[in-house]
């Protein structure tokens, strides 16, 4: 019996979310008294194994010769091969594009129930009940899984990274895979850029930013704070910012440690997408804006004037 966790690398490195996932899988394996097996696909930099080790990894199925990004169906076949090999009780993935594409396939293949976007540790193990967001962040659901194999996709920022002693043993993993039906003809990477879903701090702009040309200072603030940038729906609809930055009910639902809303009024659809942030800061010129009801700290004022002052104040603090 074991817990199988798929740890995804990006450009050969394991990012923060994946260390959360590793710590989480370790905790689940301890609580349910099972071995932990880690699956890695694609080429990983040598020094990264020590980091994984420090977060509890022991046996690692190392699919280093498999491509990093592959057709979902073929990728699922690799996952099935790992499942056949270790016969897990739990399969744990990130609730990201990869996890969303793969977990349902495992569910069908093994008749395994999923808690998608599980928030932290389960409410109970026997029976297995996990908590997830519902109604796009306006509620939470307690989901009971009836099957023997449980598939969990962990919501980012819902479990703290914990160091624990591991001892990585790499084991070559070379399943025979079918020919993919789809073919990648071009790949565009946002190398080096902090992903919205991975960020601890998110600086987000709304219609109160007035135009696409005013984003320079917001980006400067985000860069100074090591934050990712985001926006509200009207901003991405206007084309001021790309769609992948849209947070809210129909965009991305995020839960960073700190969410800074600049010139965002706070429509219910927007709040649904950010309400699980630990701390929310709102700056808006309208004192009646609903964002203030959801915020922990607020300033009624002009964002254009305040952003440069925030940059200065933040830099002073960090000196």
């Amino acid at each position: 019996m074991s817990v199988l966790v798929y740890i995804e690398n990006r450009d050969g490195q394991f990012k923060k979310n994946q260390l959360e996932l590793m710590s989480y899988a370790k905790k689940i394996s301890e609580a349910s008294n099972q071995d932990i097996v880690t699956l890695s696909i694609g080429n990983v930099k040598e020094e990264e194994w020590a980091r994984l080790s420090a977060h509890g990894a022991t046996r690692v199925l190392n699919g280093e010769n498999l491509p990093n990004q592959i057709d979902n169906e073929v990728f699922a076949q690799a996952l099935f091969a790992a499942i056949e090999l270790v016969q897990p009780k739990y399969l744990i993935l990130s609730d990201n594009n990869t996890g969303k594409a793969l977990a349902p396939r495992v569910s069908v293949k093994y008749r395994a129930g999923i808690v998608s976007g599980i928030l932290g540790l389960p409410i109970s193990y026997e029976p297995f009940i996990g908590k997830k967001r519902a109604y796009s962040g306006k509620a939470f659901a307690h989901v009971k899984v009836n099957s023997d194999l449980k598939v969990l996709t962990l919501s980012p920022n819902s479990f703290e990274i914990k160091e624990s002693s591991g001892n990585v043993q790499l084991e070559a993993f070379e399943p025979t895979l079918p020919t993919p039906k789809t073919k990648v003809v071009q790949a565009d990477k946002q190398t080096g850029k902090l992903l919205l879903s991975e960020a601890d701090i998110v600086v987000s702009g709304g219609r109160g930013m007035k135009s696409a040309d005013n984003w320079g200072p917001l980006e400067e603030l985000a860069e100074a704070m090591g934050a990712a940038t985001a926006c509200s729906r009207p901003v991405s609809d206007e084309g001021w910012r790309p769609h992948h930055e849209h947070v809210g009910q129909t965009g991305k639902i995020i839960g960073p440690t700190l969410y800074i809303a600049l010139g965002i009024s706070g429509a219910i659809q927007h709040l649904a997408g950010v309400s699980s942030s630990k701390v929310i800061v709102a700056i808006n010129k309208d004192p009646e804006a609903p964002i203030f009801a959801a915020a922990d700290y607020g300033i009624v004022g002009d964002v254009q004037k305040l952003i440069p002052q925030l940059i200065v104040a933040y830099k002073e603090l960090k000196q």
């Binding site: 990006r10 990648v184 790949a187 565009d188 850029k193």
Partner: peptide
């Protein structure tokens, strides 16, 4: 995909 986009046939 995580950290980028891909064009597929």
């Amino acid at each position: 995909v995580e950290g980028g986009t891909e064009q597929l046939e």
